[in-house]
């Protein structure tokens, strides 16, 4: 490979590439999870003391939790793929 250094992408592209795939993955995960588990029953599990009683809130909270996890993973991937030049900045 040559020493080609890709120019930084615009912020919108970076955000999009992290948020959108993770949104998609979180959607699929929530669907599978809540098809098997009734959010109302989660409230009865004593290991989850703050789980909301209402199903709508349960679905939402579950989805947001999944999205946090998938977005964190996407962000991690992005950090690992950043070229060295972004870290080895010349001073000045």
């Amino acid at each position: 490979m040559s020493d080609f250094d890709h120019p930084p992408r615009p912020l919108v592209q970076r955000l999009g590439a992290i948020l959108w795939p993770s949104f998609f993955a979180a959607g699929v995960a929530s669907m599978v999870f809540f098809a098997a588990i009734d959010p109302a029953e989660l409230a009865e599990i004593s290991a989850l003391p703050y789980w909301p009683e209402s199903r709508e809130l349960g679905y939402t909270l579950g989805f947001l939790l999944f999205w946090t996890a998938t977005a964190a993973s996407s962000t991690f991937t992005w950090i690992l793929l950043r070229p060295a030049s972004r870290f080895n900045r010349r001073p000045g």
Binding site: S2, D3, F4, D5, H6, P7
Partner: peptide, 10 residues
């Protein structure tokens, strides 16, 4: 700049 960069930008 590396040649590829300019090309990409244009």
């Amino acid at each position: 700049a590396p040649q590829g960069t300019v090309e990409y930008e244009s």
